[in-house]
């Protein structure tokens, strides 16, 4: 199994954001490893998702629940549906560890979520911990650090 190039890693992160913006959630969920997590810390520089509260700390089951809920006929907070939009800086390669099969990228981004007449702009850094599974890159951890993680926030219904 050949290691991914830097360009593979960058392409992966860009593609991942695109799947969210295009509401291709089935394909998006498929990018996560079986034990993968999506983590949005509550605290600045948070190190622990267990004994410190997070905004999100979803495994694949929880992500699946969110995605199914978005589709639900009685999901009133999605009538009309939210839309979202990512602007990414070029992902930077933080670490490449081929022996451990672990690759970490760091991507500053702006994220807009909108529904009805309300539009919220978030600034965040996405840290992707990626791994090769069966010849494909998968997400072990996607960590999203909001620059205003501890602010009084409005609903965030989609994925950053």
């Amino acid at each position: 199994m050949s290691a991914p190039t830097d360009q593979d890693l960058i392409g992966f992160v860009v593609h991942e954001a695109r799947l969210i913006d295009q509401h291709r959630f089935e394909e998006w969920l498929d990018l996560f490893a079986e034990d993968g997590h999506y983590w949005m810390p509550l605290e600045w520089g948070q190190t622990d998702p267990r004994l410190t509260t997070s905004l999100m700390y979803d495994d694949k089951v929880l992500l699946r629940i969110r995605i199914e809920r978005l589709k639900g006929n009685r999901t009133f907070s999605q009538k009309p549906k939210s839309r979202c939009h990512h602007v990414l800086q070029t992902p930077q390669i933080e670490t490449r560890d081929e022996a451990a099969n672990q690759y970490v990228t760091w991507t500053p981004m702006h994220y807009v979520e909108t529904r009805l007449d309300e539009q919220e702009l978030y600034a965040a850094w996405a840290t992707h911990t990626l791994t090769m599974v069966g010849g494909k890159l998968k997400i072990k951890l996607k960590r999203v650090d909001l620059v205003n993680c501890d602010a009084a926030l409005r609903s965030i219904q989609l994925f950053m």
Binding site: L51, M56, R69, T75, F76, S77, R154, S155
Partner: peptide, 29 residues
């Protein structure tokens, strides 16, 4: 035990966070 705090925080995250799907239901109403 810490596991109790962990459940407390899980509950708070899943029910009361701005990212909570249950919270989204209520806020919409």
């Amino acid at each position: 035990p810490d596991a109790l705090l962990e459940r407390t925080l899980t509950y708070n995250r899943l029910v009361n966070a701005p990212t909570s799907i249950l919270g989204h239901d209520d806020l919409e109403m």
